[in-house]
Simulated assay, not measured.
Amino acid sequence: MAAALCAVLVTAGVAGGAEVAPGDVSFEDSAVVTAITSEPGNPEEGAKVLANRGLGNCLACHAVAALKKEQFQGNVAPPLDGVADRWTPEQLRAIVADAKQVFGEETVMPGFYSLNVGVNVRKNLVGKTILTAQQVEDVVAFLGTLREAQ
């Protein structure tokens, strides 16, 4: 039920199988109000992306109790438990898409759907994002399930 509600919350705006290009993502007051793909985010897929060391690699820095089976969770960044109580889906989308737009240039969190990735980018990765638009929406949907215990 919560996953379905979250999927509804994170989708609004992009029509007909389209996705917003990384350079066209609109940040407003530390939020990305419009979904960047027309497909709803899938929390189960988002959990996989978040835990995948070759994709999101979020667990290198963050800990997530819901993924306790995953080894070697980080303690460099805040735990993600309860993140849905602290941030709206629109704010979470902005953080995942390009954390520098929210936290400033000093953050070490990468922009997962941004082409502003710095210098000395490996040539075969120039012009590519870390995650696809759908993967961003999936991660946001998963993060939307992470509430503080009642």
Rank of each mutant, 00 (worst) to 15 (best):
P22L: 13
L131P: 00
G104V: 10
T132F: 08
T37H: 04
A149H: 11
V32T: 08
L5M: 11
G41V: 06
D98Y: 07
S30H: 10
N75Y: 03
A47Q: 13
Q101M: 14
N75L: 09
A4G: 14
E45W: 05
A149Q: 09
E28N: 10
V136L: 07
A12E: 12
V96H: 01
G23E: 14
G127V: 05
G41Y: 05
K69T: 12
G23A: 09
G54F: 10
N52L: 02
A77G: 11
G56D: 09
H62P: 15
T129D: 10
A63V: 01
S30Q: 13
D138T: 02
Q150I: 05
M109Q: 10
L59Y: 08
G144H: 02
V10G: 06
E39S: 13
C6E: 12
E39P: 00
A77Q: 11
D85L: 06
E106W: 03
G23Y: 00
D98I: 06
V102I: 06
K123M: 13
V117A: 15
E44W: 11
G104F: 03
A65P: 07
A63I: 00
G13A: 07
G56I: 11
T37Y: 01
E28C: 03
Q91A: 15
N57G: 13
V121P: 03
G13Q: 03
L143I: 01
L143D: 02
S30V: 02
L67K: 09
K100V: 08
H62C: 15
A133L: 08
V96I: 12
I36W: 06
F27A: 10
K128E: 08
V102D: 04
Q73W: 00
K100Q: 15
G104P: 05
F103M: 14
E28F: 04
P89D: 07
T34E: 14
M109L: 13
V25F: 06
V121D: 05
L9F: 04
L9Y: 02
A94N: 05
I130P: 00
F103T: 04
A94H: 04
A99Y: 04
A7K: 07
K68C: 04
T107I: 10
V25P: 07
A77D: 09
L67Q: 14
Y113M: 08
G56K: 12
T34M: 13
